[in-house]
């Protein structure tokens, strides 16, 4: 679904990420870890075509990410659900509208399953709240609901448990595991080793670590 071949990325002159190769196959579950500032968010941005590799190749659903035009990028975004680190809501819309946004921008209306989806993430009583009124955990779950509303093949989550308490982060993790059981490809970027450990018994996951600008498959030490 998504492949990287010797891909590198640099914001300025110095490379942040180098020589990364990876193949995300359908139904896989990956954690992406590494210290803060290592480039986890940058890596995910390469996967949803927010950034373009400065060298090497990135293919999204068989398309070369380097030559995609804006319409093709929009098309890819409809197949990849992203939980952004800072959620990225529109504050003038309600939670229900924010969650339905990927549908709305295609000129479609949300049906009854919007309420089911909101119930699934436990937000059925916050439907008409505005994003600033939500707690961190509620925002993360709303962001997850929005990421999956188009039933994408791939779900990328950037620190989905950042800034929320342990109990809440277990709930979010559980939702991600459920999605993986439905056959979705999931990648979760997190600096939280405890979260990865907690996931071990629930899902067969691989752990990738960004270290010294390179992507490594983490060993059994986790």
């Amino acid at each position: 679904m998504i492949t990287l071949q010797n891909a590198s990325y640099a914001y300025g002159a110095d490379a942040l990420l180098e020589g990364m190769s990876l193949e995300l196959s359908q139904g896989s579950f990956h954690f992406l870890t590494g210290p803060s500032g290592a480039g986890k968010s940058t890596f995910l941005k390469l996967l949803y075509a927010e950034l373009r590799a400065t060298s090497g190749a990135v293919h999204l659903f068989g398309q070369d990410a380097r030559t995609m035009d804006r319409d093709e990028v929009a098309g890819v975004r409809q197949r990849i659900g992203v939980v952004h680190q800072d959620c990225q809501f529109l504050d003038h819309l309600t939670i229900a509208e924010n969650v339905a946004l990927p549908l709305m921008v295609q000129g479609k209306r949300a049906g009854a399953d919007l309420l089911d989806l909101l119930a699934w993430v436990g937000l059925n009583d916050r439907v008409n709240a505005k994003p600033p009124e939500l707690s961190g955990g509620e925002r993360q779950r709303a962001a997850l609901a929005r990421a999956v509303i188009l039933s994408p093949d791939v779900i990328l989550a950037d620190e989905p448990t950042g800034n929320i308490d342990w109990e809440m982060s277990q709930k979010v993790l559980q939702l991600l595991v459920e999605l993986n059981r439905m056959g979705k490809t999931v990648m979760v970027a997190t600096h939280d080793i405890a979260l990865i450990r907690a996931a071990k018994p629930q899902v067969a996951s691989r752990v990738l670590r960004i270290q010294n600008r390179h992507l490594h498959l983490a060993g059994a030490d986790l």
């Binding site: 990028v73 975004r77 409809q78 990225q88 809501f89 946004l101 990927p102 921008v105």
Partner: peptide, 15 residues
């Protein structure tokens, strides 16, 4: 707003 719309897959046409 435009950034968010693009992140959720909006085409320029729509925006």
């Amino acid at each position: 707003v435009i950034t968010v719309l693009r992140l959720v897959g909006a085409h320029d046409r729509f925006i």
